[in-house]
Write a protein that binds this DNA or RNA. Structure first.
Lengths: 349, 349
DNA sequence: ATGAAAGCGCTAACAG
DNA sequence: CTGTTAGCGCTTTCAT
């Protein structure tokens, strides 16, 4: 195994000083064209490439950003990562991915591991447990240490940092409205417990839409799923609850689900109970996943534009990182709202 | 924004030398208990944590591994990443993700970017373009520079490195056999062009199974999809080709698809053409995705155990990295075969 | 028991 | 035009 070429080696072999080599490789005007050519030729010959770690240490910036997400096996987060990579790579940044696995302590550990100099900033969507505990100490500490943070999707207002989110309330309102416009009278919502910000906000949108139509919400029709049923082992439980709902209220003619899986499972249960979709029951989901597209019937859904969120988050973060360098007054904190749009497919009329 | 605490600062404030502080924090027996206590207390007070970058430079190892994949928006790769993270984090490693986006040059650029000291080793699944061009120079160079490599899923034999793969041929053979056992007589395969290793091997397994049943393969029934139709914009094209196949051979009673999407689309097209699944037509896919589980009918499929592959890949890589330290004779190259298993759902009898 | 100094690989201010 | 030096933060050998 060959050792990597260093400036030192080049310098020794060429019998010049290290700094001459360094400067020559950067086309410094201080160095004669002759030397520059010689150094470069030799560097290429030995396949010299500067050591990133040394540069990071010197510059006190790593040109890498950390993205911490609850789970990577979700299409949405995957899209966000892709967006982050796109933007970051174009700007010469690398991306370290940390998975909290929806656990508070994993989130903290992961962040601490990276905050020790490995990254220049974080892009984060909180774990469920963090939202539940409302313990944001680790975010605060990051900020105190001067590490910029951008939160997305699962946001919390208390943290003074840049944020990227969709207008959950509006997206949900429009989805519910659409169901109403398409003739649904009795619309159920399948949502999360309120500590999940996106669930709470989407529920709010649902209520607003009903209100606009002078419909009184019925507690029975608001199914707040306990804990995170996105996980595979909880699907049966999810199914049972939806079954109960549909059996108790067989005249439900609209379902708005706050994520893709809830929607898909709802459709499955409904089909098993012989609901005709979209004839008798219309369904709209929330997300931009693959399941929706390939479900049968294909699912109408509120698109979240994950990739765009990722790009925007990376852009905000890198702007913050760059401004730290000049130590200029920070520009004000931004909350970027990505607009959703409703994709109508075959689960609605 | 507070600056991060360094040994230097601690030393100055405590009026001892940097090396004393360093040693004290490591409980060196060279240092008096008294000093140790004092230093530690103060370090905690100032929330001192060592700078990873400095450590990396000193130790010439970064404790981070790079994983390069063609696309992150695929459930399989996502599972692999998860497996890699699991194992790597447990061993104190971070994971940098690089996306080649199925492009050769992106793959090369990404790897070069990381090979400059940012990572201790790579886990790689080649881009489609790389397979097509068969240009493996960048892998060779990595190895020459002493950076260990582990390839998974999309493997190429020419590269002398550790590998993790499933037994594609066997998995495909068993899938096809199962179709035969369940009464299918005329089985089509929807596969990729041969330069995609996994497609080629799975096709091989299909042929072997037919052979075992003394069935002559029909060229017409082997649909080799051009380029990568996993991409959304190519789905129409995929559909068209499958339609043509099913129309030309309406008595096809079995389909083996080498990935999830092909299988799902095949089912959709077949349903549109009023094939009864699984009554008249049985379908088996290859992968371990979400689509299969939630399709209707749910898809029988060969499970790839992506997460296990990721864990195994990380394990092999970290072993290689560790052995470099002692500069001991390398242990021989390993190719770890992860066994697949057939998950029978409702697309087969 | 403590500290000085060298070095990981690189840059840049300053000298010559 | 080229070289010396200091320093990024840390570890470690070798004095003291």
């Amino acid at each position: 195994m060959k050792k990597r070429t260093t400036l030192k080696q080049l310098a020794k072999e060429l019998d010049v000083s290290i700094s001459t080599v360094s400067k020559a490789l950067k086309n410094s005007p201080e160095i004669s064209q002759d030397t520059i050519d010689k150094v470069k030729a030799f560097a290429k010959l030995l396949n010299y490439r500067p050591n990133n770690i040394a540069l990071s240490l010197k510059n006190r910036k790593t040109k890498t950003i950390g993205i911490i997400i609850p789970d990577i096996v979700h299409h949405f987060f995957t899209k966000v990562i892709k967006g982050v990579e796109n933007y970051a790579n174009a700007k010469g940044y690398n991306v370290i991915v940390g998975l909290s696995n929806e656990s508070f302590s994993n989130e903290v550990i992961n962040m601490e591991m990276l905050a020790n100099g490995s990254i220049d900033g974080f892009i984060i969507s909180m774990s469920r447990e963090t939202m539940k505990r409302q313990d944001y100490q680790h975010f605060i500490e990051c900020l105190n240490e001067g590490i910029p943070l951008v939160m997305f999707d699962r946001i919390v207002n208390e943290i003074p940092c840049d944020k990227v989110m969709v207008d959950d309330t509006k997206g949900a309102r429009i989805a519910t409205q659409t169901l109403l416009e398409k003739g649904a009278k009795k619309i159920a919502i399948i949502t999360t417990k309120d500590y999940v910000s996106v669930g709470r906000l989407r529920t709010k949108g649902y209520l607003e839409a009903l209100d606009a139509y002078n419909i009184n919400p019925m507690a029975d029709l608001i199914l707040k799923i306990d804990d995170d049923l996105l996980y595979e082992n909880h699907i049966e439980n999810l199914e049972t609850q939806i079954q109960k709902l549909l059996k108790q209220h067989p005249n439900i003619d609209g379902i708005f689900a706050v994520n893709e899986l809830y929607a898909i499972v709802a459709m499955k249960v409904a089909k098993d109970l012989n609901f005709d979709i979209p004839g008798k029951l219309q369904v709209i989901g929330f997300t931009d996943g693959m399941l929706s597209k390939h479900a049968s019937p294909s699912l109408s859904t509120v698109s979240q534009h994950g990739e765009e969120m990722g790009e925007k988050a990376a852009e905000l973060l890198i702007k913050r990182i760059d401004e730290r360098v000049d130590d200029m007054p920070k520009h004000p904190l931004m909350t970027k709202i990505i607009s959703t749009n409703l994709i109508l497919r075959n689960s609605t009329k």
